[in-house]
């Protein structure tokens, strides 16, 4: 199981590598679409990364209500528990 701080670190690394986003811009309140310009096509690649990191099957449905980085952290925390 991953702690939420670990998850945020993982996401910062993923955003930097996949989208060249400065980790300093990634906080819990950051909105994925409006602030980071991550669209539904990018989300596919992001979900793929999450799947590989937590090592279990995830579906787009798991992230349907995610709007901010904080939402994403919670969703991943739930998934890595469940």
């Amino acid at each position: 199981m991953m702690q939420s701080s670990e998850i945020l670190q993982m996401l910062r690394a993923a955003f930097a590598e996949l989208f060249e986003i400065d980790p300093a811009r990634v906080t819990a309140a950051t909105r994925l679409n409006e602030d980071l310009e991550i669209d539904s096509i990018d989300a596919v690649d992001l979900i793929d990364r999450v799947r590989r990191v937590i090592g279990r099957k995830v579906t787009p449905e798991d992230f349907r209500t995610v709007r901010t980085v904080g939402d994403l952290v919670q969703a991943i925390e739930r998934l890595s528990k469940g």
Partner: peptide, 8 residues
């Protein structure tokens, strides 16, 4: 529709 299903 720009979804996971479409890309995959």
């Amino acid at each position: 529709a720009p979804t996971f299903e479409m890309v995959e």
